[in-house]
Amino acid sequence: MSSPILKLVAQRIALGILLLLAISVLIFAGTQILPGDVAQAILGQSATPESLANLREQLGLNDPAYVRYFHWLGGVLTGDLGTAMSSGQDIATSIKGRLWNTLFLAFWAAIVAIPLAITLGLIAVRYRNGWVDKLISGLALASTSFPEFFIGYLLVYFFAVKWQIFPAISTVYDGMPFGERMQAIALPATALTLVVLAHMMRMTRAAILNVMQSAYVETAELKGLSAFSVIRKHAFPNAIAPIINVVMLNLAYLIVGVVVVEVIFVYPGMGQYLVDHVTKRDVPVVQAVGLIFAAVYISLNIIADIAAIVANPRLRHPK
């Protein structure tokens, strides 16, 4: 590794941290602007002016906003995400299991979706403008165009109700055997795969087609390489940066954008956790989940940037 790469990578990471801090301010400010009052929400009908005032005092709601922000930030940095107001449970502890479940689901969806999308993209380029290309593009676009809840319910109808292969509700619990766990997430993982497939496949196709015009692709053809070797050996390595970018965006979506799918399959992940607590106006939980989602998004994009830098031979091997 040479110094220009290290410098660029360090820049990206520093920028990412700065961005995350800015987002933490936004999240905090946003939840402050929201109408409603946690104390009121907790006490509900039984609220008296005195009990409201007491609870506010107890929760620190009377401090100025910036004091509460730094208090919160300090906690986050030391791993203390606060206590859920609605249940009184420690947020960090309850999120841990949920985050693990979400990552587990995202991981298996990604393992299937990413290689499949890239392979389909390569095949589409190989047979570009022919019927194979059109079929792949058509199916991929159709699967993306359907709303994810529709795909989810279709899967449930066929695989759970009609043929009874997979469970309709993806209940998972601690200590669940791996095989059962995989069976439980089969349907939500399939739904997620179908949702993200087209985007990555179309982008792979476009990025490779873009470099297919290059003189070095012609050189490769004139060496007698087969059409697929030309794409794989000469076009793909030069299209890698945009492909990584779109893969990372979709990976981020698999983690932070799964709310609907998790709700459909009643899967105990981050999305459901967030939705539950939004309805309860549980501000600390919403803040914590929002911050984690932002961190995931930013880290994946940093990884994409770094991968694009490392994939560039001009930066890897300076003159």
Binding site: A215, A220, K223, H234, N238
Partner: peptide, 15 residues
């Protein structure tokens, strides 16, 4: 075999 006008463009930058 073929020798192109612009070798700079005809060589694959990735290899």
């Amino acid at each position: 075999c073929y020798v192109a006008q612009s070798a700079a463009a005809a060589f694959n930058p990735a290899h």
